[in-house]
Design a protein around this nucleic acid. Structure first.
Lengths: 383, 383
DNA sequence: AGGCATCATTCAAAGTTTGAATGAAGTGAC
DNA sequence: GTCACTTCATTCAAACTTTGAATGATGCCT
């Protein structure tokens, strides 16, 4: 019943869909050539995708001869919900299959309340309403997540441990639910919809209240052997440095994060909080120097990371993109120090992330796998 | 003609072969379950592989019922030649499909001679003799290699630039020839035959006259966007350090490599050359301290690398494994400094690499893809 | 109007996987 | 010794997918 011939077509459907989404508008013959399949097959597969509402004609071209129909991801038929979960707040977005935000929501929330999943389900059902065309709900969580099984392993900020979020929420909502670590989800969104989506090998760095990263290789987010890949926040940059929340000394995040920068500014009597520090940076050289030092430290670590991974580009995202200009030069200078490898030449691309970016990332968890049949709660094939 | 149904069976053959090689002896039903294919298919595919001489029964098990035939890679039917190319020397090994060395060769060579490929072909034909069961010749080269196209982009140590090695040598030898960067090839050998081969996510570090690394993810060697992945040798560890051959200052390789260690020892009046330094390390604390400082520097860089990649294990290989015990403790101490991520807990496994290890790696380039039809010199499908 | 170039679709043929039934190969009990 | 039993392996018709070649569609250009 789980025939491998069926799997073959299913694989081809996924491949075609993936190509259409990432490589922008494409004609059937383009797809056939790029994927090494025959035009006959593409005809069949594209028809299925169009019928399913995932793909639609977005343009047509002609030089001479029959016009080429160019296909792209559908803008209206289907959509997904993306949710960013925080300790006291939920932010949700409705995203169409092009990754465009078509609706949003923000609601108070208490992750440490008595029945956090019931409460979450309530907020979501109240908001979503009509469920036609809904592919599913994706949830991004800051913490360690077993995305494949849909479980939260440990999320200190939410106070959650070993919680079967996807299955439980799926029951309550009656929709497919996928969860993932927030940075991984954001990376996935970039792999599908970001400026670097044509590349199948790049890196993403997130700056903000913490510091995270992820590597996309062969078009897929790398999770590592234990799902802990991308942990650059607590790398030692100064063994004699101040103690970090993690228990170690001189972690990168203890220098390059909004709380750390604010704390350092406060100690130096430069600013009262981070917003104040940002204001001061416009005029006060000492404030700017503080960012530069952070940039140098960040750059040194990135030099190793980039030379190891050799990404096509490095995307900078997270709330911290707003102060990226203050550190960018120092980062670049440090990257250029390496004369071998790709550190010196990798393009650094700040991402225009807004408040809903993280939630959009969470939606990508669903958008990336629209063809999977609803996750069976029963047996899962082990590997 | 290049039917995708044929490709399907070809893919399944590869999958089965790969499983048998990496996951050790396995019965048909094991393979079927692990790969999600039906026993019927496995019967067919295994028969083809046995007929092709790639796989054979290595054992049989029984509790009650019909005995299970356990299959493993063949020890005798087929083999590959692996070659490590150096400026003045060629080292070759004959390797069976289990990755075991069954013959070896060493010959003088001048990579800067008038017709280097003719000379190489001559050495190899003289050595190999009988060609029955030969899957092909793999060549490992220190430098930048476009493995897919079989071209050397730039190999300073050999004095080669933009040379179509695979095609030219293939013509002269009448066999399939594959080339690759030596570190990538070594990593591939580990992915297939090393102690970490069950893991599909690990890292390898090579120590010796230089310093290299590679990441294996999803069972495949990661090449990065430009084929420059793993370049850890010229990462900055001390911006005020001594100048390195690459033009930068304070590169990791300028501290953690045999020439660098020897030079530092000479400056301190500790030893005349590296072998001398190794001897002294047995008794002289100052010599040992020199290695420890190198280990600390190495560990700091590895901390970032490991936390980023999250490998299941870190294999240490290269000629430098013999002095790994002198740096291991310092490396470990530095890795443990990180309280988050996997740096603190990743197992460090020195590989018992002998002189022929690099050549064996080169052979893996051929062993890893035995099912490919002879590379067509004509059109290549582009992607 | 007609020719033409290019894209797209149709359809019989070829090839692969699969479920169910059947066969094979031992163990252990009597 | 034989018989039942258990587990692994194979066979085979049926189901399904892809494909090459032929055919159709579509609009520009002369």
């Amino acid at each position: 019943m789980r025939g491998s011939l069926k799997r073959m077509r299913s694989d081809n459907r996924s491949m075609v869909l993936d190509y259409v989404v990432r490589q922008g508008p494409a004609a059937r013959l383009d797809i056939a050539k790029a994927l090494g399949l025959s035009p006959a097959t593409i005809t069949t597969v594209v028809r299925e995708l169009v019928d399913g509402g995932l793909v639609e004609v977005v343009d047509s071209e002609q030089t001479t001869g029959r016009p080429r129909e160019l296909f792209g991801p559908s803008a209206s038929s289907v959509h997904a919900i993306g949710v960013k979960l925080m300790a006291h707040r939920v932010v949700g977005v409705r995203v169409n299959y092009r990754g465009e935000v078509t609706g949003e929501m923000e609601h108070a929330y208490d992750s440490r309340g008595p029945r956090p999943l019931d409460a979450l389900a309530e907020v979501l059902t109240a908001w979503t309403g009509d469920r036609s065309g809904l592919l599913g709900v994706g949830i991004g969580i800051s913490g360690i997540v077993d995305a494949r099984r849909g479980r939260v392993v440990g999320a200190p900020r939410l106070g959650w441990n070993d919680l079967d979020v996807a299955a439980e929420l799926s029951d309550r909502l009656g929709t497919r639910v996928r969860i993932d670590n927030d940075v991984m989800a954001l990376a996935l969104a970039h792999a599908l919809y970001g400026p670097a989506r044509q590349h199948d090998h790049f890196m993403i760095l997130t700056l903000g209240s913490g510091l995270g990263s992820a590597v996309i290789a062969a078009g897929a987010v790398q999770r590592g052997a234990r799902g802990a890949a991308g942990e650059l926040g607590h790398v030692t940059v100064d063994a004699g440095g101040p103690e970090c929340g993690c228990g170690a000394r001189g972690c990168l995040e203890a220098y390059v994060s909004e709380p750390a920068l604010a704390a350092e500014a406060a100690r130096a009597g430069l600013a009262t909080d981070f917003e104040d520090l940002l204001d001061k940076a416009a005029s006060e050289p000492r404030a700017r120097a503080l960012f530069e030092r952070a940039g140098t430290r960040l750059g040194r670590v990135l030099q190793t990371a980039v030379n190891l991974v050799d990404p096509a580009v490095l995307i900078v995202s997270g709330e911290g993109v707003r102060w990226w200009p203050l550190v960018a030069d120092a980062v670049r200078a440090e990257l250029r120090r390496a004369k071998a490898g790709s550190a010196g030449s990798v393009p650094l691309i700040p991402d225009d992330l807004d408040d809903r970016g993280w939630a959009r990332g969470a939606a990508a968890c669903v958008l990336s796998a629209p063809l999977e049949t609803t996750t069976p709660h029963t047996k899962e094939r082990q590997r």
